[in-house]
Design a binder for these strands. Structure first.
Lengths: 337, 337
DNA sequence: CTGAAAGCGCTTACAG
DNA sequence: CTGAAAGCGCTTACAG
């Protein structure tokens, strides 16, 4: 690889001048500029981003810490959005390992040793030690689905609360009164917002809250199976269940069918996320849509804004959610009216 | 952030000595080593990987070029494998943009300007200009599912040919004789291997090859729908169809059901990939399993071996495939015997 | 065993 | 408008 010295020699100028041409400084004569450009062309010279970063302090690299498997469809869509927003931005994406439970590992040290310009963090809860360190470090940060902020840290999430609220209302309007809720991880930011939405929905429908109808899960398929199994043992089993994720809704449906009942004939089911599979599933899943791709795009756009100007206020953005009605919900069979 | 100079000053030694301690050189007295270690601890010093890379020529960064959306389940699993193998290796992963069709963009320049130690490439066909450039560049490379090699470039893929062969044999043993094939992209390495496997399977079963029973697709859901629609218009429609991907198999099944027929009652369907959804789908999909995670892991392991020693021969590895029988295949109804 | 010096490939005041 | 010099944070012969 040709270096800036080679170009300078070829063009018969100093390296400082070459640097100025590369960086579009105005105070270079057209004649010199042309000579340099020719030399660059001739030698196929490309500036070394690494070396440049050492002196400018900018790496043109954005880190991403994702503490959830890539095979999670939600993660995949988020990454797709991140990728889209990064394209042509000049920034490259670096994945940071997620050894969050290894005390010898420091996420911040990692960011510093790599000179990262900013990071987006997904799937780490607010109270994890590294979150606090990160906020204090002053590295521009966007949290996805984590309710944390700082001088240089913003966050972005879906309107989870209203989403579940809408799901409950939808079921209410179909005549359901015994509406169960398969909750997400307790204490988890997103899980709690959705749980609050469930109560909102009941309240708006004047349905009394009944503890038996709320089962905790962890968003997974398996937790859907387990949760539904419990609900089916209830004396007055629910006629509908709202789930805190599509994956757990699939588990719920599987469990219902394994017990010889049908969806939505006997029990209606609503998911949350609107992952790709929701449409493919049989029955196609009624669910709450999240604009995950948009969240990925915006997280990067906002992050870059923060990187570019140190007084860009760290944003807190909430993306709207929406109800997508498909085949897994229907009028309540034993409607009380 | 403390620099090596700060540590040297704090410890009362030269930066050269600090460097030796960091890099575990043996020729440092225990006393000095201790002083330096204390200073490092005290200042929370972490070496700057970027600066180090500038002088050593190693960035401890591996690039990944993936020319397929992250939302593709296959890509997600591959990444998961890559991630696993990278953990604790000391290498970080950088995603490279895939502006392969932008003539102004050079993938190799990108690798060089980022000082990448090696790259894994997925979803780019052998004849793309950047592949040739990459091979010539001498950057250690592992191609996934692309049949390219070079002095410093190896590849890894699934035994695609035998996979489809097994699928055909499975159907044959169930009594099927009119076995159609929904092919992948023509000219595509993986597509062609699987196509060859189809012919192998017919031959081994003494079934004559019939052109009408082969429809081209591009691995997508939509191409499955379109392909099956064509096949259903045939006078003697097939009793079974082997698909070149699970996604296209889902499309095929959708199309069959849309025509009022059932799977596997009327027509048996086999997929390829064994993505997560294959098991969730109804009917659960009989398919050919690829060890995608293992491919991800091995691609990185081999790449790192190549990086570490310049005479490590570029590997060409084929992962075995296997048949997973589920619910989408059954004995042929109108078996000819 | 220790350190001064050169250098990796750049950029940035600064002097002329 | 141009270039010499210092410096970003490191490592690596080399001399002592």
């Amino acid at each position: 690889m040709a270096s800036i010295h080679d170009v300078a020699k070829e063009a018969g100028v100093s390296v400082a001048t070459v640097s100025k041409v590369i960086n579009h400084y105005p105070d270079v004569s057209d004649k010199t500029r042309k000579k340099v450009k020719n030399a660059i062309e001739l030698l196929r010279y490309r500036p070394n981003v690494i070396a440049r970063g050492l002196v400018t302090g900018r790496s043109w690299t954005v880190g991403v810490l994702i503490n959830i498997p890539f095979t999670n469809p939600y993660v995949a869509m988020l990454l797709e959005g991140i990728k889209t927003a990064l394209e042509d931005s000049g920034y490259d994406l670096m994945r940071l390992s997620a050894r969050l439970n290894d005390p010898a590992y420091s996420f911040i040290d990692h960011c510093h040793s790599r000179n990262l310009d900013g990071v987006v963090v997904f799937g780490v809860e607010k109270d994890h030690r590294s979150i606090q360190e990160l906020i204090e470090s002053g590295i521009p940060t966007m949290f996805v689905d984590t309710d944390a902020t700082g001088l240089r840290a913003g966050n972005i999430t879906t309107d989870n609360r209203n989403g579940v609220h809408m799901a409950v209302r939808h079921l209410f309007e179909l005549g359901h009164r015994r509406i169960a809720y398969l909750a997400g991880t307790p204490g988890h930011n997103v899980g709690e917002s959705r749980r609050a939405g469930y109560r909102d929905g009941l309240e708006a429908s004047s349905i009394p809250y009944c503890e038996d109808y709320v089962v905790n899960g962890d968003f997974s398929y398996d937790s859907g199976i387990q949760g539904m199994t419990k609900l089916l043992q209830l004396e007055r089993r629910p006629t509908a269940v709202v789930c805190s994720s599509d994956m757990s809704a699939f588990g719920v449906i599987h469990s219902i069918e394994a017990h010889g009942l049908t969806v939505p004939g006997d029990i209606s089911v609503v998911g949350f996320d609107n992952i790709y599979e929701a449409e493919l599933f049989k029955p196609a899943l009624t669910t709450i849509n999240q604009n995950i791709h948009a969240i990925g795009v915006k997280s990067i756009q906002e992050l870059i804004s923060m990187i570019k100007s140190s007084d860009y206020p760290p944003p807190v953005v909430t993306e709207p959610s929406s109800l997508i009605v498909r085949e897994s919900t229907a009028t309540c069979a034993d409607s009380v009216g």
